[in-house]
Simulated assay, not measured.
Amino acid sequence: MKWLYTFQVNRDIEVEETTEKKNDKGEEIKETKTIKKTRPVQVKIRKPSRRMFDDGELYYGVKLSEGIKAGLLTRAQLAKRYEDDGGSLSDSEKERYSEVYLALFEKENQLQRYQLNLEKMSDEEKKDKISALLIEMSDLRRELQEFEASQSALFDQTAENRAKNKTIMWWVLQLANVEKTCGEWKDYHWYNKELKGDEKPEEPDMEALFIGEDLDQKLSKYDELEESEDLFWNETIKKLAYFISYWYSGQAETEEDFQRVEEFLTTQEEDEGEGKTEGEAEGETKAEDKTEDKAESTKDTEEKNPKNEPKKEVLVKPEKTEEKAKGDAADKKEEPAKQKNQPA
């Protein structure tokens, strides 16, 4: 079987480890403990056969027909409707889009003139003008991207888009393979073998990740793994969906393409982690500031009221109301009764 791409996902597993030691009598005994270890598990994406491509195209066509029958518009129908209604952009938005596009074009020409230094500016002046111009161009590009993203979002709920998402899921269920465990060791066997010299680890046996006789059974297995709290399966499914989406859209075909996609995914995860860490650090800084403010406030209070200075006692004359007086009288009547009931 040929493979499109192979990647690894770490998994925590329990293995039995046996050690030899001597007891109090000097006898050698074996002690077996169950310990947790982290294993890099291989996951492979199968290279589709011609028959699988035919089945995939048929599945896409079926899902496209289902969407149309359910009332979803195709991209062509949706575009025609917007065209009949005057387009998806208002007149002011169209005018602004043209202005931004033209402004960006002019800025790019101006950048070329600065780089060629046709005006014979000094190096420092040239550097400052180019930096300012690049910032302006970045803002214009961002505004254009927002326009284009809003236009793209209009076509998300089309019959083609639904069929594409369903077909990507179909490919994930068909192409995903994971490394088998060794029944004897209850572990991933090729990591247990001690290698000698230039000996290379043997390739592990692989098995289909989503096992089932039909698509419904495979989907049930997918749902079972996705809903589990096992971090290994969650990470594996996430990467499989990511890689196969890029492959299906034609952006990843060679191993180098998949490696670039994996690097991009890793960078995204690291950026998210750093953002979270910065937020936590900011929270800790605020907490420290509050603690310092509280300490300073306490210090100021102590300076105003030194401990050695005697405090003045303020006597407050109690005011008895009629209800309080009645309550006191009732308490006094109950006290003798309680004393009578107490055993001698």
Score class of each variant (00 low, 15 high):
R46M: 11
R96P: 03
E106R: 13
A70M: 10
A76T: 09
Q268H: 04
E296R: 11
M1V: 09
Q157F: 14
E262C: 00
I211V: 12
A329Y: 12
E108N: 05
D187N: 14
S65M: 02
E119H: 07
E270F: 01
W247V: 11
R142F: 10
I237K: 02
E125V: 09
E95C: 01
R39P: 00
Y82I: 02
K332C: 09
G212I: 03
R260A: 14
L58G: 00
T277D: 04
M206L: 13
A132L: 03
Q115M: 13
T38N: 12
S90N: 11
R260H: 10
E313F: 09
V316Q: 07
K129Q: 13
E270C: 01
L225K: 09
E93F: 05
A344N: 13
E269W: 01
A281I: 13
L195W: 05
S98I: 04
G67E: 06
E334D: 08
G56L: 10
E272L: 15
E262W: 07
D328F: 08
R39T: 07
Y82S: 06
R46W: 06
D139F: 10
F105G: 02
C182A: 07
E229F: 09
L116I: 11
E262Y: 07
L4R: 13
K63S: 08
S228M: 10
P204E: 00
Q342E: 07
R50H: 06
F258G: 03
L215C: 03
L154I: 12
Y101C: 00
A149K: 15
I68D: 06
L265P: 01
G250L: 08
A76E: 15
K120T: 14
P40C: 00
L195V: 03
P336K: 12
V178D: 03
R11K: 15
L315A: 06
Q174E: 15
K290E: 15
Q342P: 08
R96N: 07
K30M: 02
E229W: 06
P343N: 04
E334Q: 09
Q42T: 03
N165W: 12
K326V: 13
Q110G: 02
E334G: 05
S228Q: 11
I237W: 01
F147L: 10
Q268G: 04
G273W: 06
L195T: 08
